[in-house]
Design a protein around this nucleic acid. Structure first.
Lengths: 189, 189
DNA sequence: GACCGTAACACTAACGGTTAGCTTTATGGA
DNA sequence: TCCATAAAGCTAACCGTTAGTGTTACGGTC
């Protein structure tokens, strides 16, 4: 634990980043389906097996920051001030996440995701994992005191809000509209 | 429409059923991952290309009745009596669907689904399609008069209810609990 | 009843993602 | 200095899936 990132770990991180950057660049230049794994590996100057030791699948190359999304959601629950109610905290975080991924700079990536069935399917199963993590955080919060089913339901609804808002013409308004519904749903539990 | 299924169509249906039955039998006997497509095709005595002309993917072999699920959901909306409110109609249908797929006879299949990541991912993207169809039916219902976002939201929530209930220890109770939340969400739109 | 368009099926060969098995390199600690 | 081990590499395949190209047999038409 006394090791301020050693050379080994730095090299590993560099390899990982080089692979991800190369992959994203090629995908955006020529299309996700038109670029093969062998090509990404060659361009990043690594072996195919190395690529797969850093990323579990081709789709995962596109969702590199996967874990960030999950962490932010969970922190929105665990790091909120003791008197702040749950749903507004979730809404605030979803607002921020939607704003982040509908920003102009991120738009080419999301356009690519939206037009590739494989990427859409992968994203959806990712979101499911996030919903499960969020549900676990809700269940663990002693201030909430709801059933497991209620927690899992609100977690799913929250992820739904993100997904629906992202596809909406007016994402921020959609978040508000859906969260009014979530607020009501939470209130009856 | 005056054609009482000709021989051609009967043979096609027979081939389709033979493939699906063979696949399900092999999958249950030896595990989904342990049985390859070439093996299913050989056992059903068809060419691999024939198999893929009947089913779009290996996973689709397991979810043969896919379309039924979707149709039932939509009919629950369109075929309800003019004065019956929406949410109870949806709840009734989800109750029936959950009962159907948690029946003892269906349990081995669902256990297989639950233990195969590929099948779970496929099921989830199937449900998404169903949610979109349901949302379209809701949007088209002149008696509802809600925003597109509200319709899509309720459609997703309904699918969530199905998915969560199926995994719950007491599925019927879970449906009721989640639908109390959906009822409240619908009421505020 | 012969005839033709076509739907269903078959065969081969390949492509692209993914993995197993094994070797090589280089880093961090003893 | 030397060893254990993590990282990366190479080969060779497996598996789902598809394109390309016939071949058969059904169904409607003359």
């Amino acid at each position: 634990m006394t090791t301020p990132p050693g050379r080994r770990e730095r090299k590993k991180a560099a390899t990982r980043r080089k692979i991800a950057d190369t992959a994203l660049r090629l995908f955006l230049e020529r299309g996700y389906d038109a670029v093969g794994i062998r090509e990404v590996a060659a361009e990043a100057d690594v072996a195919v097996t190395t690529l797969f030791s850093h990323f579990p699948s081709k789709e995962a190359l596109v969702f590199e920051q996967d874990a960030d999304f999950e962490q932010r959601l969970i922190r929105a629950v665990t790091d909120r001030t003791p008197d702040e109610p749950l749903v507004p905290a979730l809404r605030r975080e979803i607002h921020a996440l939607v704003r982040h991924c509908t920003a102009d700079s991120a738009s080419p990536v999301w356009h690519m995701v939206d037009t590739s069935p494989a990427l859409r399917a992968y994203e959806e199963s990712m979101r499911l994992r996030h919903a499960e993590s969020l549900a676990a955080a809700l269940t663990a919060d002693p201030g909430l005191a709801r059933t497991t089913t209620a927690c899992r339901t609100i977690a799913r609804f929250t992820i739904d809000a993100y997904a629906l808002a992202r596809e909406s013409a007016d994402p921020q308004a959609a978040v508000d509209e859906i969260f009014r519904m979530i607020e009501a749903a939470w209130a009856v539990t």
